[in-house]
């Protein structure tokens, strides 16, 4: 087993053993493989990148080629325990509708995304007057796949409007490390948030 990404380490603590998982944008399947091994979950990953799909197949991960922007209507209501989406919310066409779909299919969902309210991002825009670029956000405004950037507060307002309950939130730096300083002012000092949400 390769060393697990730190965000995946945070996610796994919220996954119940023997549960059903759906991983949206599953990459090469490292989270699913880890959860299958450690938590005995059953799961499927959705992915559209051809190389990553082939990697999943080689890794023995149940991968399904499916475009998240075309919806998840092929999954029944409440058919999955936890629907996970790491670092893809900001890249889909309608994050709000996808969140609805995730919580229609799943009892719970786990979402991670970069914080556009991170202090460096705010200062970049304020001082340079240009769309922020960083290691986490390495793209130009015109070619970025991140078409719906939001701040932690934006996300929490959306959850409130939709009646989505936030079960847990962990805020980390760009290496997915927790740090006491981040806890002082997470919406300013946190770079990536990991939300555990439900409708129940």
């Amino acid at each position: 087993m390769n060393e697990l990404r730190d965000d995946l380490k945070i996610i796994q603590q919220w996954i119940k053993p023997d549960s059903q998982i759906l991983d949206l944008g599953c990459g090469e399947g490292s989270l699913l493989r880890y959860l299958e091994k450690e938590k005995n979950v059953r799961g499927y990953g959705l992915e559209i990148n051809p190389d990553k799909i082939t990697a999943c197949i080689a890794n023995g991960v149940n991968v399904i080629e499916q475009d998240l922007d075309k919806g998840l209507s092929n999954f029944n209501d409440n058919s999955i325990d936890t629907v996970i989406m790491t670092q893809a919310l900001q890249a889909v066409q309608r994050p709000d509708l996808l969140l609805d779909e995730m919580l229609r299919i799943g009892d719970e969902a786990i979402v991670t995304f970069p914080n556009f309210g991170y202090w460096r991002t705010r200062f970049y825009l304020m001082l340079k007057g240009r769309m922020p670029m960083s290691e986490t956000l390495p793209y130009n405004w015109y070619d970025t796949p991140n078409i719906h950037m939001c701040t932690f507060r934006d996300f929490e307002v959306l959850c409130r409007e939709k009646g989505i309950r936030i079960l847990n939130r962990t805020v980390v730096d760009d290496e997915h490390k927790e740090h006491w300083t981040i806890r002082l002012w997470p919406s300013m000092l946190g770079e990536i948030a990991v939300y555990h949400i439900t409708r129940k």
Binding site: Q20, R42, Y44, P50, I53, T54, C56, I57, V61, N62, V63, I64, E65, N74, F75, N76, S79
Partner: peptide
Amino acid sequence: VNALMQADKDVCYACVE
């Protein structure tokens, strides 16, 4: 594929360009 997933079977699916 959808029937296989609903039946909880192991399945990989690719739609090749």
